[in-house]
Design a binder for these strands. Structure first.
Lengths: 232, 232
DNA sequence: CGTGTTGTCGTCAACCTGACGATAAACAGC
DNA sequence: GCTGTTTATCGTCAGGTTGACGACAACACG
């Protein structure tokens, strides 16, 4: 911590939050991107974000931006800090430190462009990673996706992609989309129902058209998966 | 990301780095603390840290502070970003965002007090967590220790606490100190030598006084432990 | 009523884990 | 040298977990 705080003594920074908002659409992992309407990087796609307000904590700023950019008042799912990025030349005009957040949400409505964005859209993560993004957002996005992949192994976070009630198969499709690899339905069912406290059986069923109806579950209160679901 | 950058438009922040520097001394986990020589929190113990310079990246600032506060030019071991803390009232005089870093290092010399610190010392982590610290440093320290505990499970980071060449027993004592739990020497030896690429046998031995001499190893190039060493 | 599709339960060999016995290689004291 | 002590390393074994895959159940559709 600094010990001298003469306001003339410290270099001023701008602090922003950037959001990696992941969701599942059509069994594929998507990320929310906005098209920049102003320089620098006008016309480029970027992660949504904005300034931290003077009397606002970092988490609060991320939650506010998440609501603003998705157009949903209380976004269900999960929000956690990812990392901070502060290369001196990451923004050509001033010194900016960006605190990135990772959000995992169930399928949300199509976004509308914000005040200073030319457009907003859900983009498949594979496409977004291949596309050139503004600032250092390609790296931020890659870090966010890797964090999500890792966290599915040992945390119950996959359920954040699902609605309040969900089936084991829906949960499995989350894992398959995030890890990009098919999983054996039988082994997945065994492991996931075997973790005590992970799933709460609602007693009800859901038929989705074809096939045998599946049992509906709700999230349990467990915070760590023991043992983890290895992706090898 | 912000889209409008009128300098009159964004609230200025001070950005600092705080360091959680962990090391092993006498088979116990220690953290580097400094005694504050100025208000606020004058006389309180705090994590070392300081302002990020205008033309310096975050990682570079953390590395610079680490060298300054330990008095060692190129600190061996490991340095990674931990998290950022930016509650609006975490500093009574101005808006500060602190980017915390976690450093793991082998036993280092006794620190000397820096320019604006009244003192500096290695403190047992248990004592430091029980002691009241300046700012929100108690939480930062707790987060750092928890990160270290978790990372030992699935990463080869424990070797960062050891010298260049080390024995399996030294590595085990790292785990025991960080996890606060004794481990079975035989099972630990089996698992750790079984991970391909984790340890490189130097072919040499070291006798440390009592007992049979142990084989000396160097860090391998593996980045992830498969399977992990569970702490249960 | 068959057929296809999806969900759930069982089985089995391979592997891994933790508990712990046994042996190897040094030192200290006599 | 001999004996006990300490530390390192190798083996053994029962119990649990994993991945591969067979079997069956419960629905929709024609």
């Amino acid at each position: 911590m600094p010990t001298r705080y003469d306001p003339a003594d410290y270099p001023p920074f701008a602090v922003t939050v950037d959001l990696v908002v992941l969701t599942l659409r059509a069994d594929a992992l998507h990320v929310l991107l906005v098209e920049r309407g102003a320089d620098p990087w006008r016309g480029r796609w970027a992660l949504p974000g904005g300034f931290v307000h003077p009397d606002e904590g970092l988490d609060a700023a991320a939650a506010r931006e998440l609501a603003e950019e998705t157009g949903v008042r209380d976004v269900p799912g999960h929000l956690e800090q990812l990392a901070s990025y502060g290369d001196p030349d990451r923004d050509p005009r001033m010194r900016v430190v960006s605190v990135a957040y990772l959000a995992l949400a169930p399928d949300l409505p199509e976004p509308r462009a914000g005040s200073d964005a030319a457009g907003a859209a859900w983009v498949r993560v594979d496409d977004a990673l291949a596309r050139p993004l503004a600032f250092d957002h390609a790296r931020v996005l890659a870090d966010g996706v890797e964090r999500a992949r890792a966290k599915l192994e040992y945390s119950p976070l996959a359920a954040a992609f699902c609605a309040d009630e969900f089936t084991v198969a829906e949960l499995r499709r989350v894992y398959e989309a995030v890890w990009g690899r098919p999983l054996d339905p039988r082994n997945f069912h065994r492991k996931v129902t075997g973790v005590p406290g992970l799933l709460v059986d609602t007693g009800r069923m859901r038929a989705e058209g074809r096939g045998r109806p599946a049992a509906l579950y709700r999230r349990g209160d467990v915070t760590t998966l023991h043992p983890p679901l290895s992706r090898d």
